[in-house]
């Protein structure tokens, strides 16, 4: 494992910490898209189907369990916690799941590395992760007064995939035959979706003003 991969995973982990911190400290999930959170949970469930059948390392297994556990915990907070669930922006969070899930499922059926249930479901998770942030980005654009933790959360999510791209470049040059077109292209698409957000995030940080996305 290289430093970019480790940094990417740690940033990803930190994004969960920031999100849980925001929700718990403010007892509010205002500005957080439940749809994006549900899609991420679906992504992890589909990607880690081999959790118990394919052991790579203690690190991998632990991280997978943490990601799954945290995702379900966030869903519980947003849907089941009696104080927090009333703060959810239901009327604003209107993105349709099917617009993302259906094309990703079709694409996974068409473009994959192997025609096995595990592989197709895994590929679906890669495609879905690339676009799962869209409901959150749409909600951010509609939210006035984005709080710092929400902005930081989305920034960390984007940074994580950016660091993974550096990790793939590193692996390409250091590992023989390391080619993963599906993952690379999806990861690049995923990172590109954040570029607009990055621009406004960094601008607000440099000018020391509150983050606001133009609608």
């Amino acid at each position: 494992m290289n430093i970019f991969r480790l940094a990417g995973d740690m940033v990803h982990l930190l994004s969960f910490v920031v999100l849980v911190l925001k929700i718990n400290a403010t007892k509010s999930c205002r500005g957080i898209s439940l749809k994006t959170q549900e899609l991420y949970t679906l992504v992890f469930v589909c990607r880690y189907l081999d959790l118990f059948s394919n052991f790579i390392s203690m690190y991998n297994t632990t991280m997978k369990i943490v990601f799954l556990g945290t995702s379900f915990a966030i869903l519980y907070l947003m849907r089941g916690h009696k104080v927090i669930k009333v703060t959810y922006d239901r009327e604003q969070d209107t993105f349709r799941y099917l617009f993302l899930v259906l094309p990703c499922a079709l694409l996974a059926l068409l473009i994959h590395n192997a025609w096995t249930p595990f592989e197709v479901v895994w590929t679906f998770s890669i495609y879905l992760e690339a676009v799962a942030i869209l409901p959150q980005l749409v909600l951010l654009q509609r939210t006035q007064n984005i709080d710092n933790l929400t902005g930081n959360y989305v920034f960390l999510l984007g940074l994580y995939r950016g660091l993974y791209i550096l990790n793939w470049i590193y692996r390409y040059f250091t590992e023989p035959h390391y080619i993963q077109w599906i993952v690379w292209i999806s990861g690049i698409v995923q990172t590109i979706l954040y570029l607009d957000f990055f621009y406004y995030y960094i601008k607000s940080w440099k000018n020391n003003v509150k983050l606001a996305l133009p609608s």
């Binding site: 991969r5 995973d9 990803h12 990607r47 081999d50 394919n54 790579i56 390392s57 991998n60 991280m63 997978k64 990601f67 590395n113 192997a114 592989e119 895994w122 993974y164 990790n167 590992e175 035959h177 390391y178 080619i179 993963q180 993952v183």
Partner: peptide, 10 residues
């Protein structure tokens, strides 16, 4: 097995 099918990333 090739590294393509190992899925060693998260």
């Amino acid at each position: 097995a090739t590294s393509q099918h190992e899925h060693d990333e998260l």
